[in-house]
């Protein structure tokens, strides 16, 4: 056995990738451990986030030094994260399927790359720019036009769409921006799946007398079903972890649940950013550790959703769909 330094260097660099994932988990878990012990399961079920009295001497509770009255519950942010992501996906999935079918089958070959490029461009726009657009264009539009129109139509039937519209910042704005950010992920994956359906399958469906759209719906879409599910989970992962765009349009709710689709909300990811300054004022450091606990939960959610998505879409990845 000869020592091969070149291979050793390659192996070392490769090991950094799994090592990074392990390090993220270990260090976040280690740092948030006092918070995990202090908060217990009430962390997930509590709906009050309070830093407590930062000017009085800290007291000892559950074996940890914490400010008097400190309480860390993130149920409001869990609800905010799940509701924005769910509404975003409810909008994005049908739209993405339409876009994918349109791009893969509805165009002649010459137009296809040009219009595909537009969808790829959507994936390249930085999330803070989505936030800027949401802040300066979308939220005024919701307050002035979209909100009143929704309330006047759907709001008459479903109470969740009625009530006060407010300033435009909130659940609806965050969901719409998220939907826009998730569409290119789902659409590109499904489009690539449709493009790989063998010509024989399509021809067989045509031979049975199917129209073009029947071929797409009855023969092609069922073949890429697992791609579609995987792509949706991938999009869900993206939506759950999105930070800046949501932060800039969600209005920021602390300690109350959304009561209609226009209510301000806060997601777990955006809460981490918005709270750092306040949390740093806590002399015991428990607030910063509780934020680390949120980051740890987000990490675990991301790992699970991505594993599910990769198992379903298989290991095939496409350079063009990045």
């Amino acid at each position: 056995m000869t020592l091969r330094p070149f291979r050793m260097v390659l192996l070392l660099a490769t090991s950094l990738i799994p090592l990074a994932l392990v390090a993220i988990f270990v260090f976040l878990a280690h740092y948030s451990w006092p918070a995990i012990r202090f908060n217990g399961l009430g962390f997930l079920g509590g709906h009050t986030w309070s830093l407590g009295n930062l000017y009085a001497n800290p007291v000892e509770r559950h074996g940890q030094q914490v400010p008097i009255g400190a309480n860390y519950g993130i149920l409001v942010f869990i609800v905010g994260t799940l509701s924005t992501s769910a509404i975003a996906l409810a909008i994005a999935i049908p739209v993405s399927l339409g876009v994918a079918i349109f791009l893969a089958e509805g165009l002649n070959a010459r137009l296809r790359p040009v219009l595909s490029f537009i969808v790829e461009l959507l994936a390249a726009v930085p999330s803070v720019v989505y936030g800027l657009w949401g802040y300066s264009v979308l939220t005024p539009l919701i307050a002035r036009d979209i909100g009143p129109a929704l309330r006047g139509s759907l709001g008459r039937i479903i109470p969740f769409f009625g009530g006060s519209i407010g300033s435009g910042y909130g659940l609806l704005a965050a969901s719409l921006v998220l939907a826009l950010m998730v569409v290119p992920i789902i659409a590109a994956t499904v489009r690539d799946g449709l493009a790989r359906v063998p010509a024989e399958t399509k021809e067989a469906a045509y031979a049975l007398g199917a129209t073009h759209f029947e071929v797409v719906r009855r023969a092609m879409l069922p073949m890429v079903r697992s791609n579609i599910i995987g792509a949706c989970i991938l999009g869900l992962g993206r939506a759950l972890g999105e930070t800046m765009a949501v932060l800039m349009v969600s209005g920021g709710a602390l300690n109350y649940f959304p009561n209609n689709i226009y209510s301000p909300v806060t997601t777990m990811a955006s809460f981490i950013v918005s709270q750092l300054d306040s949390a740093l004022q806590d002399p015991t450091g428990m607030a910063v550790r509780s934020l680390a606990e949120i980051a740890l939960i987000l990490f675990i959610i991301a790992v699970i959703t991505n594993m599910l998505a990769r198992f379903l879409t298989g290991s095939s990845r496409h350079v063009s769909s990045l």
Binding site: P18, A302, M307, R310
Partner: peptide, 19 residues
């Protein structure tokens, strides 16, 4: 590694920042 490479691209950037 190929699989974990995929997983790492899916970790939210704010989590990396906090790490």
């Amino acid at each position: 590694v190929r699989f974990l490479d995929d997983v790492l691209t899916g970790v939210p950037s704010i989590v990396l920042g906090y790490f």
